[in-house]
Amino acid sequence: MVSTTPQQPITALKGEQRVVIHHVTWEGYLQILAALPETRSTRLIYDNGTLEMTMPGADHEWFGRMIGRFIWILVEELSDAMGWDIKTMGSTTMNYPTFKKGAEPDEAFYIQNQPTVANKTVDFAADPPPDILLEVDITNTDIDKNRFYAALGVPEFWRFDGQTLRIYQLQHQEYVEAQTSPTFPMIPTSRLYDFLEQCRTSEVQAAKTLRSWLQQEVLSQ
């Protein structure tokens, strides 16, 4: 079993281009959001006056999609055993006016709370936040994302820097780093690294390998 992270050095990765603007009001942020086209690769995150625009590069996008797919496969394979379903939020804008925070994450999923938001448009003012949220940040971001998503009450935050995945669990409104995902305690992080490594040569084969490992090693226990 390969337990190392992907081999490519982080500096060679196409991470992000970012632009930060300070002293933007909440109303200004909403106006900018409204003015921008709905379909765009640039994502906005707004935290109490600071607006960061992130244009993801090729490697950023790829890691985001692959990790999202990894989570999706885990839920699908474990759905019968755990009684789960999944609702994919993608980069849907999550606006919390009371906190003056808004974000468009790389991936976000409802799993445990899927029944609460199934078959409806999520209303972040009334509905719970997503259960797992993923951000890929290969280059430096000016936003303190741990504080940010902890404030929004996201129970589980996955962060990937192009080499290492860190999983944070919300405890008393703060993130504590966890060795394995609280949602998937039976899945070691090394499985994700294997999956990413295999996806570099064959995404289909990587998915098959992951599914058969889950069936043989996890579901048969």
Partner: peptide, 13 residues
């Protein structure tokens, strides 16, 4: 939309 963004941004940036 460009004008809207310009106006939404602070003058000093």
């Amino acid at each position: 939309s460009y004008l809207q963004i310009l106006h939404a941004l602070p003058n000093h940036r």
